[in-house]
Write a protein that binds this DNA or RNA. Structure first.
Length: 541
RNA sequence: GCCCCCGUAGCUCAGCGGAUAGAGCAGCCGCCUUCUAAGCGGUUGGUCGCUGGUUCGAUCCCAGCCGGGGGCACCA
């Protein structure tokens, strides 16, 4: 397409530059051909000519290309392209040959991306709020790598400061049979962890209180972190790096970061505290780095953490945060600007709306301290890993998500994950049956794929690479899920209309053999797509 | 008050400036003696919150309203 435009320009038909991106899509209506493009409409202004005239010039070039049967100029200047018979069908073999590589691209090759998500505090189990990010973040990881990026996934551990001390104190209190302190942590898991600490350090309760709290804090945090890892791992989410906040305090990295920010001239002292003048860079108020009692804030560690990431060579740091943390965006960007980087280039903060849980029409409050936690493990036990991952990934992160326990507990066919998985299982079954009939992948005659259902399935398959690239670019894994639902629909309709193995006593023909390729191409794309979501592609259901 | 997200079919949502705005569910009517009916077909259902603006063209971009959700610590 780009070549055709360039040829038209070279031929002196109109002025202007070849556009960087040409949108060629599958039209909604079959009347508009196999593919359609608005390129002429986009070029018209620069060319200084009516769009239809530009369209005619491009169409003339396109008609000379191989594989194109027909090009029409329609409406204000759309180009409707109809492919030569077989040109579309050839895709089935291309996909089978590409296998797991179909859908991958090199759009982000050379980009080093740090992707931080979940970052659950080691003071409680992974809960539902984290779970949305576990599903979306892990899927985004897979998408970015499919687009060729070099991605490191990272989980930050807040193992420093007052919340952790609070957690340790709560463990100690519970172990002693005393009530949990004011604002302490509640919930059954606190007693469980306290018990495990005593198992690990049998004399812990006999130590002087100050030492005992230290033991409960340190060991409790380690145990909790292991539980967090185990839950995430069970959910098929593995991180390349678990990064400790405390390690930066101990190594002096936080002090070094403060010194660097001070050198840059953005630090000031007031009311006994040390502040960063983030308002210079659009934040709505300045932020405290060191409290008047001498303790460094979480924000100070964040600054150090950002500098550490940059020091490790990432050219883009992506943060995935819940809407309850959106106030951080301004100050994170201010850190970047204070450090001398361009916030529009080196960081990207993805904000996702919160997940609500409804039980019997009542909202279940998610509060670790109140002890009413719905955990990741609970969710997996209720609906299974595949349904949980798929359900959390198929909605845009911009949409607040309400999960009804009754709804997600119900294992029914209105759950789209079953629709897509069933389609995959069906392709596998069809492949097995074809093999039993002696239909393998030997003969391939694409001109025989003439049914409208075949054209629809083929165009859907052709859109997969574009869908993956767009989902990666927009950081929108839900687009993959929606694409798969669309593809599964095209497949089911095709399966219903076009038989792979012959009916009754009919002879096996090349149509049957060629359809086996199309079936296999669909199987591959469904599996590749489900893989991007971290959902299993079952061979039988 | 300020900041972020949302407002599209009865419900839940999809639509990164294009042609007649889509899907699932819910409702109604159909399709299994032959490759998985966890499937397929048909049908009912819309002032894309409102008002302006930009554009050849706006559900999409901009501004202002209205409505809903969330957030605005020397906690993390």
């Amino acid at each position: 397409m780009r070549a055709a435009v360039r040829d038209a320009i070279d031929a002196g038909e109109f002025a202007g530059a070849t556009p960087d991106e040409v949108v060629v899509e599958r039209p909604k209506s079959a009347d508009h051909g196999d593919f359609a493009t608005n390129v002429a409409l986009r070029l018209a202004k620069a060319a200084g000519k009516p769009a239809r005239e530009v369209a005619e010039a491009v169409a003339a070039q396109l008609r000379q290309s191989d594989g194109i049967a027909e090009v029409d100029v329609a409406g204000p200047g759309f180009l409707n392209i109809r492919l030569a018979s077989g040109a579309l069908g050839a895709l089935a073999k291309d996909i089978v040959e590409a296998g797991a590589g179909y859908g991958r691209s090199g759009e982000l090759t050379g980009r080093r991306i740090n992707l931080e998500f979940v970052s659950a505090n080691p003071t409680g189990p992974v809960h539902l709020g984290h779970t949305r990010w576990a599903a979306l973040g892990d899927s985004l990881h897979r998408l970015l790598e499919a687009a060729g990026a070099d991605v490191t996934t990272e989980h930050y551990i807040n193992d420093f400061g007052s919340q952790l001390a609070n957690f340790g104190a709560s463990l100690y209190a519970v172990a002693q049979g005393r009530p949990v302190p004011e604002n302490g942590y509640h919930g059954d898991y606190v007693a469980d962890v306290a018990e495990q600490v005593i198992e690990a350090v049998p004399g812990a309760l006999d130590l002087p209180p100050a030492e005992a709290v230290g033991v409960f804090t340190t060991i409790g945090e380690q145990l909790m972190l292991e539980l967090v890892r185990a839950s995430l791992s069970r959910f098929r989410v593995e991180f390349d790096v678990y990064f400790s906040e405390r390690s930066m305090h101990e190594s002096g990295a936080v002090d070094a970061a403060l010194a660097r920010l001070r050198e840059q001239g953005h630090v000031f002292d007031a009311d006994g505290a040390v502040w960063l003048r983030t308002t210079d860079f659009g934040d709505d108020r300045d932020r405290v780095l060191v409290r008047s009692n001498g303790e460094k804030t979480y924000f100070a560690a964040d600054a150090a953490y950002y500098l550490d990431k940059r020091g490790r060579g990432f050219d883009r740091c992506i943060y995935m945060l819940g809407a309850d943390h959106h106030g951080y965006v301004g100050r994170l960007k201010a850190i970047v600007a204070c450090a001398g980087d361009d916030p529009e280039q080196t960081i990207e903060v993805l904000i996702g709306q919160l997940v609500k849980l409804v039980r019997d029409g009542q909202e279940v409050r998610l509060s670790k301290r109140a002890g009413t936690i719905v955990t990741l493990d609970d969710l997996i036990d209720l609906v299974g890993i595949d349904a949980a991952r798929y359900s959390l990934a198929r909605w845009s992160a911009d949409t607040p998500l309400t999960l009804d326990i009754a709804e997600i507990t119900k294992r029914s066919n209105d759950n789209p994950v079953f629709y897509v998985q069933y389609a995959h299982a069906r392709t596998c079954n069809a492949k097995r049956n074809a093999a039993d009939f002696g239909i393998g992948l030997d003969v391939f005659v694409p001109e025989l794929l003439t049914s409208p259902f075949e054209a629809a399935l083929l165009t859907a398959l052709s859109e997969f690479p574009r869908a993956v690239a767009t989902a990666a670019e927009l950081r929108a894994p839900h687009r993959v899920a929606r694409y798969l639902e669309d593809l599964a629909g095209s497949y089911h309709r095709w399966y219903d209309a076009c038989r792979i193995i012959p009916q009754g006593d009919d002879e096996i023909t090349d149509v049957n053999r060629t359809r086996a390729w199309l079936n296999d191409a669909t199987r591959i794309v469904l599996a590749n797509g489900l893989g991007l979501l971290g959902v299993d592609a079952p061979e039988r259901m």
